[in-house]
């Protein structure tokens, strides 16, 4: 059984496209990154998974349950961290945490206290006096305190300082090791690359790539940076070329022997050959429409 499985999930807002034919598979216990820029359809997909909006077409299953028919049973087992966190004015952090637990019919006091300690969250503060980071931390505790089987997070680190981000990801790692499935939507690619095992890239409402982060990064292309004079025009498979007075940098997906021959003929003072990072894969997908993935 997969944690999330969607079949041609589609959403139109009137005539405006939200997402089209999203086929997403997230295995149980996976740490899954969902990448795309603003407006690509990440939040629309998440909102459909959570039953906030109804799909125009397609269907989905969460933890083996029908996304539309079993919405309440799904939400009992899911924790959600929204991108924008808003609470009712006048409430204190402790009130919000108790309200969230109460709406789930649970007493999460112990787990909430532990999380608040780790995130240095003062439960006596009023939510309308909190900074963006403080509100985010409150929402994180709400999402985690009932120890859900599936965590869905939309831009989770916005507003968190680097130390808190580290603690937050440490908590997620522990939860993931304990069996929790994590679905993390973000446009901070380094976050996905560092933490996630699998990922999917969404572009203009459609999935354009998905797979393990390792496999996506290992595309066969190498980033080559040369200091010196090299006849790169003689090479096939060069893209994203940047040339400056001292040398050049490019992504190379052609024959390695041909590259070595060209380098040997040139005057090379320094050479770096590395794997492209997820950001480059992402940018490549966005520029070229992701063909071939």
């Amino acid at each position: 059984m997969d944690a999330i499985r969607t079949y041609a999930l589609t959403k139109y807002y009137g005539k405006t496209r939200g997402v089209e034919n999203i086929d997403l598979t997230v295995g149980q216990g996976d740490y899954f990154g969902f990448i795309g820029p603003n407006g690509a359809g990440k939040s629309t997909t998440i909102r459909m998974l959570l039953g906030l909006i109804r799909p125009s077409g397609g269907r989905g299953e969460i933890l083996g349950l029908d996304m539309e028919k079993d919405c309440e049973r799904i939400l009992e087992r899911v924790g959600y961290l929204p991108a924008e966190t808003a609470f009712w004015p006048g409430m204190r952090v402790g009130d919000v945490l108790r309200l969230s637990a109460g709406l789930r019919g649970r007493d999460c006091g112990t787990a909430a206290r532990r999380l608040c300690e780790r995130l240095q969250l003062d439960t006596g503060r009023r939510v309308d006096e909190l900074s963006l980071g403080g509100r985010k931390k409150t929402a994180i505790v709400c999402a985690l305190q009932h120890e859900p089987e599936l965590l869905i997070m939309d831009e989770p680190t916005s507003g968190l300082d680097p130390l808190m981000q580290r603690e937050f990801f440490a908590i997620l790692r522990e939860r993931n090791q304990a069996g929790t499935t994590i679905f993390l939507s973000s446009h901070v690619l380094s976050e996905i690359q560092r933490n996630c095992a699998h990922t999917a890239i969404i572009r203009a409402g459609s999935l354009i790539a998905s797979g393990s982060v390792e496999a996506l990064v290992r595309t066969g292309a190498k980033r080559v940076r040369v200091c010196g004079r090299v006849d790169h025009a003689a090479l096939e498979g060069v893209r994203d070329l940047r040339v400056w007075a001292e040398g050049a940098e490019f992504l190379y997906s052609g024959d390695m022997q041909a590259l070595l021959a060209v380098l040997a003929r040139g005057e090379v003072r320094d050479l770096t050959v590395s794997e492209p990072d997820l950001e480059e894969v992402f940018m490549h997908c966005y520029r070229d429409g992701g063909e071939g993935r």
């Binding site: 959570l50 906030l52 309440e72 939400l75 929204p82 924008e84 808003a86 009712w88 709400c142």
Partner: peptide
Amino acid sequence: RDKTAEFLLTHPLP
């Protein structure tokens, strides 16, 4: 209006 719907409706309440 106050953006609290997302919080409220992602709890298991019909």
